[in-house]
Design a protein around this nucleic acid. Structure first.
Lengths: 130, 130
DNA sequence: TTATGTGGTATCCGATCAGTAACTAACAGT
DNA sequence: ACTGTTAGTTACTGATCGGATACCACATAA
């Protein structure tokens, strides 16, 4: 049986694909998390540190600066007594939320799947050990 | 004006968030692209190399193996004369497509935005040649 | 015999990333 | 005067990622 070359093209766009463009924004370990936490309204730097305890100050700063430079978040210094900084999503950032939601939805399914695999004891649908 | 602590919690889930779970899958430079190209139907290794010319064989192999291990793609060796390998999305992989679409949609908007910023002259929204 | 195509592996290298710890400046409260 | 809070910065370090290159076994075609 000889090989046959498929001629149908993949659905990838010819020029630079928007996928990579968006992944550029989402790149970085904590970026999606930060946007997620910002989606509920503006938050201060130290609030975000509490929201995502595992992120270090350095990384959080880096990510926020990146996102600010990309026009996704807005940084505002508030004239409080210890000056505080508030971060919020721009309208562009808001548009990322559906994508993040979709990602989170898949993550939910992944968790279910992982849980189902973890307890192999279950009667139906036992995943065979490989 | 003294600082006031906000008590409303961010919408992040308490335990491990599905966002990171899914980003684990999507991690890697070319992963979303690969899934995108697979979304149009099964493809062979060398077809993917043509689809995404900038990815090296090493990285492509690595990504495909990762995705296979995570249950996102299926790898099938076909008994053709030069044995060929076909990769396709599993049902789990299919579920990633909406997320990828959402990401691509945002990427599209990002491109528009970038184009609009590039030609500051404004009104006509002429897409500059790149 | 050599060339080509298929589906990879092995190795090295440089860039980037993220974590840790220490440090800062201004101000409020005690 | 001392301490805590806010929002970072800086330097050091290890991990990982991805690119480039070379190489492999096998099969067909010329």
């Amino acid at each position: 049986m000889a090989l046959k070359i498929r001629k149908n093209l993949s659905p990838a766009p010819p020029n630079e694909c928007p996928l990579s463009k968006c992944m550029e924004v989402l790149r970085g370990a904590w970026t999606p998390n930060i946007i997620w936490n910002l989606s509920g309204g503006p938050r201060r730097f130290s609030e975000l540190r509490v929201d995502i305890p595992k992120v270090s100050a350095k990384v959080l700063t880096t990510r926020l600066r990146d996102l600010e430079a990309k026009g996704v978040v807005l940084r505002e210094v508030k004239p409080t007594s210890p000056p505080s900084v508030e971060y919020s999503l721009t309208d562009l950032g808001q548009q990322l939320i559906p994508a993040i939601d979709a990602i989170a939805a898949v993550g939910h399914k992944l968790k279910e799947r992982a849980a189902a695999q973890e307890c192999t004891k279950g009667r139906g649908r036992r995943v065979a050990a490989e």
